[in-house]
Design a protein around this nucleic acid. Sequence first.
DNA 1: TAGGCCATCTGGTCCT
DNA 2: AGGACCAGATGGCCTA
Length: 182
Amino acid sequence: TSGDQLLYKTTLAKSLSHTLPAETLNAIRRCLVTWISNMNLDVVTAEILSEWKCHESAFGENQESPQPTSPESQRESVCSSPEMCYSSQHREIKDFSFTFTSREVTAPPAQRQGKPKMSTKRRMKASEREKMRMRSLAEALHQLRDYLPPDYSKRGQPLTKIQTLKYTIEYINKLADLLSRT
DNA sequence: TAGGCCATCTGGTCCT
DNA sequence: AGGACCAGATGGCCTA
């Protein structure tokens, strides 16, 4: 709808500064889902893909062209945490290179000494949570993959995680260009 | 067989 | 104290 498009444009304008806080990412996602579901995907996809072929050399063929292998396709992960978590704090996105300005994680060895080891029970709980967290991440990527036109995986092979992320950025940029021209 | 991709485990750090 | 997040290590599966 026009309202969705307006909101989407506004959100994109904010995001074009290359800094994408979690709220912005969520807003983009919501608008894209709403907007795309209300229009003729064939037309959009055809136009985008025609442009895609022209700009393919940007990175698609050079470094991240769809590769034939993706073991995940054979072993679809069963995800128990379908909800998507967007906790991108202090994250910058510039073109296709991510810069994660995360916390300092390395500490001098001297500081590590003397810290009591986690109990087995707590370690098992932490492992379980980590497993769920990674499955949630995989599920989110799986859903993201579904929003990309099938032609992005040229040989019919599912995209890898990194390809999914990169192509999604490319797809959003192309959708934004399309919108800006209307 | 090498290399890519992935899931899982683990220990460390930061945050609430 | 416990949860969230991160990165390194490890091993399995698959393809060229």
